[in-house]
């Protein structure tokens, strides 16, 4: 008797399962067809870093103080700067990021005293060459149009 009851309750559980999946079958799909559709990245998304612009002068805010270099746990930042004539602080000439080692922890941004670096929202970085081993952020900064 117990065996019969077990068979019946077991069959019922199977039928319940099948009913549930069939209901899911007729629901609309919930995925995003990735290369064709993309989702907006959230405000705080941590992509690789980039140099920020001073909205008044249009120059990079970075003063090449090298605090980010020291804060980085993976040693993937290399900064250099010169002191230009007639300016109080140094300005950045070289800012290299080895993105292959970066773990996107944000220690550099927290360490920065002049708020000169920020995260980008780039996420689909892939390369067959060594493009991201030595990212020239100063060049990237120059290439970017000034926002009005």
């Amino acid at each position: 008797m117990k065996a019969v009851r077990e068979v019946l309750s077991g069959t019922k559980s199977l039928l319940v399962g099948m009913r549930l999946t069939l209901r899911e079958f007729f629901k609309p799909t919930i995925t995003v067809q990735y290369p064709h559709q993309t989702l907006p990245m959230p405000e705080r998304f941590r992509g690789h870093i980039e140099l920020r612009r001073d909205p008044e002068t249009g120059k990079a805010l970075c003063t090449a103080c090298k605090l980010c270099e020291r804060a980085c746990p993976s040693d993937c930042i290399l900064v250099d700067g010169v002191k230009l004539e007639g300016e109080k602080k140094k300005s950045v000439t070289d800012y290299h990021l080895n993105f292959t080692q970066c773990s996107l922890c944000g220690a550099c941004i927290e360490a920065c005293p002049s708020d000169a670096i920020q995260f980008t929202k780039r996420y689909n970085l892939a390369s067959q060459t060594n493009d991201y081993r030595n990212m020239d952020l100063v060049q990237r900064f120059k290439d970017q149009p000034e926002k009005k």
Binding site: T21, E24, F25, P28, T29, I30, T31, Q33
Partner: peptide, 13 residues
């Protein structure tokens, strides 16, 4: 395709 629909995704597209 069927597996996709059961799992709320479109399957091969």
């Amino acid at each position: 395709k069927g597996a996709g629909r059961f799992q709320r995704r479109p399957g091969p597209m």
